[in-house]
Every structure is written in structure tokens, then in C-alpha cells.
Write a protein that binds this DNA or RNA. Structure first.
Length: 205
DNA sequence: AACATCTTCAACCGCCCGGCT
DNA sequence: GAGCCGGGCGGTTGAAGATGT
């Protein structure tokens, strides 16, 4: 059994918001403030789901929203933040006053991605487009076969977990000289020993 | 002018997380 | 600890407008 839906869908409007709905929502929030989105639609006399109200308010009706075109400075800031945070749009939005996560996400997908590609930069990795990930990122096991099968499975899982972003890549390709792993490096827990092995083998390349 | 294709962005959906009981 | 609930997030969709043929 799944979760119960966030609201009664049969009796809710969907799609674009009308002016009247906007006004009702604004008026209600002016009087009662934000919060308790679930009960808000009923209280405000709106045939909308609470989530929809929240989204409409946050992304469109909030008085502190900037709206309008993104400046060059904002673009660059978004690019920088994205390279640090990835698709954490809410975190990025928190650094851009007056901008919403949805707005930034849309702007990224429509403008910035293209901008980066035209610069020859892969928007996903922030590296040159024709820059192939160094083979030492794809770890090769030198372990005994019977041990490596489980490990390989782990690696496979790892590659299926982009959120882990192991490609923090420690940017070893740019490492000038191999060195002994420091305690801190050793303690970086990338799924245990296998990752250390990969780190170590990467170091050797 | 008419139609096709592309682009933009508001809105929806499903999942996850934290707080509460 | 388990289950429920509400809020929040990121990915995706689709209508509307813009542009090209």
C-alpha cells in the first residue's frame, strides 16, 4: 500500500492559476501567513492541492521575488555553485536572493547548459567536453578473482549512484607527484576498502 | 498566411526526510 | 522502533509563445 495522496485530487483544479486564485492565495497568506499548506486551500477557498498552493506562492507570488532576466553575475554564480553543489537547486537558490530553485533549475536547463556547451564545458561535470574521465577513475581491481566479484558489484552499485559524486575525483590527474595517503585521505570513507584500493591504484597511474 | 518545429517555464509528480505520536 | 503526516526537493511534462520554412 502506498501513501495516501497529499490531497483529494478529484475535486482540485490543475494547470495554470487564474488571477482570482492568485488573489485568494495572496490574501490568505497576508492574513494568516505561510504554513500548514495542507489545510490552506480549504481555508482560502481554493480548489487546489496544498502542494500546488505552496509552489505557486514560493515560485511566483512571493513579494520578494526578483523575476526577470538573470544577470551575467548571477549566471556565473550559478555555474560556480553548481560545480560545487551539483543539482541542489534549493541550496543554490539560497545563495541567490529573490530567485527560486525552480527558476534556477529552468534557467540552468534552458540557458546555462547551452552556454557551457558552447564554451566547450560539460555542464554535468564542469570539465571540457572532450575531456574523457581519466581511466583511473574507473577503478580496476587487482584483487583476487573470488574477492573481486563482490567488489565489482559494489563498483557497479557505485556507478549507479551518481549522488555519491565520487568524482570529487580527487582530481588525481592533476596530481604532480604520487604520495603516501595521509590519514585524512585514508579516512575518506568511499564505501570502505574498495574505494581506498581505487584511490591507491589511481594514485599509481 | 499557414503550418511545423523549437524554446521556455509554470506546474505537476513521486520520492525522501524529519517531526510527531 | 514503527508508522503516519506534512513539507520540501529534484526531475519531468506540456501548454503557450517564438521562430523558422
Amino acid at each position: 500500500m502506498g501513501r495516501s495522496p497529499c490531497c483529494e485530487k478529484a475535486h482540485t483544479n490543475k494547470g495554470a492559476w487564474s488571477k482570482e486564485e492568485d488573489e485568494r492565495l495572496i490574501a490568505h497568506i497576508r492574513v494568516h501567513g505561510e504554513g500548514c499548506w495542507r489545510s490552506l486551500p480549504k481555508a482560502a477557498g481554493l480548489l487546489r492541492c496544498g502542494k500546488s498552493c505552496r509552489l505557486r506562492w514560493i515560485n511566483y507570488l512571493r513579494p520578494d521575488l526578483k523575476r526577470g532576466n538573470f544577470t551575467e553575475e548571477e549566471d556565473e554564480l550559478i555555474i560556480k555553485l553548481h560545480s560545487l553543489l551539483g543539482n541542489k537547486w534549493s541550496l543554490i537558490a539560497a545563495r541567490l536572493p529573490g530567485r527560486t530553485d525552480n527558476e534556477i533549475k529552468n534557467h540552468w536547463n534552458t540557458h546555462i547548459r547551452r552556454k557551457l556547451l558552447s564554451r566547450g564545458v560539460d555542464p554535468a561535470t564542469h570539465r571540457p567536453v572532450n575531456h574523457r574521465p581519466p581511466s583511473n577513475n574507473i577503478t580496476i581491481s587487482f584483487e583476487r578473482r573470488e574477492e573481486s566479484s563482490g567488489w565489482q558489484q559494489q563498483q557497479q552499485q557505485q556507478t549507479q549512484r551518481p549522488d555519491l559524486n565520487l568524482e570529487l575525483c580527487i582530481s588525481l590527474p592533476f596530481q604532480q607527484e604520487p604520495h603516501e595517503l595521509t590519514e585524512r585521505e585514508k579516512s575518506l570513507c568511499f564505501r570502505g576498502a574498495s574505494a581506498k584500493t581505487s584511490l591507491a591504484s589511481a594514485m599509481e597511474c
